[in-house]
Design a protein around this nucleic acid. Sequence first.
DNA 1: TTGTATGCGTTATCAC
DNA 2: GTGATAACGCATACAA
Lengths: 337, 337
Amino acid sequence: MSNTPITLKLLAEKLKMSVSTVSKALNNYPTINEHTKKHVQDMARELHYMPNKSAINLKEKKSRVIGVILPNLLDHFFTRSIYGIEQFATQNGYHIIIRQTNDELEEEIQSADMLLKSRVDGLIVAISKNTQDFSHFNQFESLGIPIVYYTRNPSFNLNCHKVLGNTFKGCYEATDLLIKRGHRKIAYLGGPKMISFTHDRFNGYINALKDNNIPFDANLVAYTDFDKENTIAAIQKLFADGNQAPTALVAFKELILFDAIKYLRSIDHPQVKQIECIGFGNNSFISYLDLPPIASLEENPESVGENAISLLLKLIDKEISIKNYQKVMVDCKLVVH
Amino acid sequence: MSNTPITLKLLAEKLKMSVSTVSKALNNYPTINEHTKKHVQDMARELHYMPNKSAINLKEKKSRVIGVILPNLLDHFFTRSIYGIEQFATQNGYHIIIRQTNDELEEEIQSADMLLKSRVDGLIVAISKNTQDFSHFNQFESLGIPIVYYTRNPSFNLNCHKVLGNTFKGCYEATDLLIKRGHRKIAYLGGPKMISFTHDRFNGYINALKDNNIPFDANLVAYTDFDKENTIAAIQKLFADGNQAPTALVAFKELILFDAIKYLRSIDHPQVKQIECIGFGNNSFISYLDLPPIASLEENPESVGENAISLLLKLIDKEISIKNYQKVMVDCKLVVH
DNA sequence: TTGTATGCGTTATCAC
DNA sequence: GTGATAACGCATACAA
């Protein structure tokens, strides 16, 4: 029933002080007497005073809203990353607006436009699989609104802030494990070439082969994206030559492996039960699969998200200069099932 | 570079009008001349004028923030429902704060507290599996902050606004389909008894049996929650008597079926490949399973979420009186795989 | 039909 | 150390 929220003015009246003194006391101004400070703060706690965010934002000319652009919330990686972002944002008095692009550049552009109009204080972006042109993000930079790119990194080294998984290391360890288990024909199933899915992971794969003196075979490499047809085409390519067919697979995403195995079973591939797989994801559904990957690369999406927003808030607060481009790497973990 | 956002004042200066006229023109006040209106609106569009949300919220004494309390974002149902909520909220100028309770009452209470302090304009809640006492939500009601309960409904008929899936109908159709496929011993695997998981679904099951003249057998009913151990215990109970073991399963959640099948395989149950299952969920991972459910009950979570926030906004805007308790049902759809 | 003045809750710049 | 006052951007009661 006491439905008038308590304001500074009310607090001041109760305390028989001026609004400005109360404000300063609550904000720990050095010029305020310690005794008054305590008095004010006690009363504020007692009356459950909560500052009005809208008033502060108006005063500070901030929206306290962060925009997050990502391809898809049905991908567990992004859902989990949102969890990390949301937690950290809330703790720091920010809200987030999530926009899904369905991995389409066109929708990414629209999302950027919408978020610009929403006056976001900063942007966290996982680019779409075909984002090559970044001009739709220029307007943010020119307004001094910082952007942190996360998970997905433009292949060409754009000058930007980024938070990425250490997929090189992850892919190296996965490949190494498969080699240690006796595999020699290990295929690599890479993702969309435009983004970081490719380079770091591929290099990890290559380096593990090299360090174990296994010659690289270009026939054991294929690329796909998130479309099942492309994955099947890639698998067909890898298994085209029955004699040279791989005995193990490393994939840029675990989901791809599920499709791969499903396809190999559908064509009754004789070796399907022997093939060992590892991919990025560590999906909890693995435990229900008949032929599960032998290990997973846990990407710690919550941590990636948290690092992204943590960096973004530092940029917003100008603790880090917007031109001082940062690159943060988050480790993957090889989980053997 | 033009980093001073355009305000009403600037607009008024350019137009050589007063701020209030401009404001009224943009808000389509009837007292404003049509010609001036058009003039103002054209100029606003041209200069990309966007009203400052913080100022409006301050003026209107609203936070334009909706709190959403739910058990878990890793459950696809909730992720998808958030999608519906988020879309609708954004379109109407609201933001959402999501709090996960991990299905724990204690965390639910903390979340409610936190959201109250955030001055949310309304609340959307999916209660935890052991929420029986609702006193932590009383403070909202007494401040006139509306609450819509969704998906999970307190068993006892609390006077409240709710948006629920029509699980009765869904369960009826699922059971009916299994009967039509020749099953007579159909087990029902129910969820936590405190919430709506139980009653409506169970009644759907019972009614389908009755309408098909199949006697009800209490041995074919078991209850579990989201813990695997409890699910296994429930399955053990159902399959304790080899001769009377069910040949089909209806479950309150599809995920439960995955655990059930996994367990039955682990004990080499002779009939495991013949058992036909249906549950609520329609998870996309089904296509990777060796022994998938024969059908799924698609709950349309996006629609449930959208209905919840749509109702909530009407309550906030007082289009519906807060005491005029609403109940909205969203249909399920039986999807045969 | 348009303009003037006031206030929403807070912080900051002065003056006392 | 403390208090009056202006300002943030917008909406509206009231005056013209």
